[in-house]
Design a protein around this nucleic acid. Structure first.
Lengths: 201, 201
DNA sequence: TGAGTTTCTGGACGCGGTCTAATAACGACT
DNA sequence: AGTCGTTATTAGACCGCGTCCAGAAACTCA
């Protein structure tokens, strides 16, 4: 935690934040699709390869504000009491994840969807994140259910619940400045799904 | 429907089927990721550009058997009686779409997921299809609901229901040769979601 | 000063995808 | 037969993302 420790080796000339800001400027000026990695790197004052040292791909920039929120799901699920009903635990964990998201941080992914040309990249990177968290949620449900239920259910729960949450995030992003907190939308979308699965589990 | 009428102009030297078969061979030999568009075109005896005359992208090949099934959703929704409860109509339409899928046609998309290197392309193309049908379903639900319900619900229904259906398709594909019909899995996955939303609509 | 470590950089490559201009193969019409 | 319009195919070039590698730069420590 002591940022004065200069570890060892050559110090970093750049940082994730620097590149994010350079990218944000360019996205506003000319949209995501028309911005190349070279331009981002140039504006940040580094070489193109350095960009890929900080981000695995250009599309990662679309999710800079969302990734850390999404990643909380595993921890929130683990924090749920063992004796709680499965779908109750799932619902509350997801709503808590949504509540932990900073109010004003709307990722590029949810705003630049309809901007023509962004769709391809966006959808590529979006489903990857979706699938990753689906794996986490499916494992949780599968463990809680044991081998009693129909084999399709854990995966169906994961896809449906996170699908509803994703829909809520989309609506939230498009609601504009006067919007309610993200967790409100997510709760409204996720509750019916959880209630439905609770009946058959 | 008369396939002898070549309309007008230069006749096609190739066809979608030819390219699909060439691709299928190569996918089996060396996986999807290690197969280039050049190789597919070469094996089919055409140039690389001709490939893009028949397919918009390499990843379209992953869904050759699924696309026509997925596209049926709009028609099946339109075929539902107007006086039927919304979620009942949605559920039945989706199950009918699944039932219309040929038993043995398992798309590459659902089998080559875990093959390392395929994921990126697969997820890119998968979410595009998912979003397209979500748009169709959301419009249907939105029209049936009018402006009475909470604004997040139509989108949440679309994402959750189709998410469950996608999960079912994945389980179906991985179930191997002894699997039950796709519609069975889809029904089991979609029913709870529809029941849950039916309570709040 | 030198050794070790980490970051940055330039250059090259492969691949997917787009574009353009040219050509080939057909039917139809004169 | 020859020409015209139409459509499919083709070669060629181009762009951008992502990967790889070898080497240089900047620092710490001994």
């Amino acid at each position: 935690m002591n940022d004065t420790t200069h570890h060892i080796g050559r110090p970093r000339r750049s940082s994730k934040r620097t590149l994010e800001e350079a990218a944000a400027e360019l996205f506003l000026e000319q949209t995501y699709a028309r911005t190349t990695v070279d331009q981002i790197a140039a504006r940040a004052g580094v070489s193109r390869n350095t960009f890929f040292n900080y981000f695995g791909s250009k599309s990662d920039l679309l999710w800079v504000d969302f990734d850390e929120t999404i990643e909380r799901l595993g921890a929130e699920l683990a924090a749920e009491a063992e004796d709680r009903a499965v779908m109750d635990a799932v619902r509350e964990a997801i709503v808590r994840v949504a509540a932990s998201h900073a109010e004003d941080r709307v990722p590029w992914a949810l705003t630049q969807v309809d901007l023509m040309g962004t769709r391809d990249d966006l959808e590529a990177s979006g489903l990857r994140r979706f699938m990753k968290q689906c794996g986490v949620l499916q494992a949780f449900v599968s463990r809680r259910l044991g081998s009693s239920a129909k084999p399709v259910l854990p995966r169906a729960v994961a896809f449906a619940v996170l699908g509803a949450a994703a829909a809520a995030a989309g609506v939230w992003a498009n609601a504009g400045v006067g919007r309610r907190p993200l967790a409100d939308y997510v709760a409204e979308a996720v509750e019916p799904v959880c209630a439905g699965f609770a009946q058959v589990l």
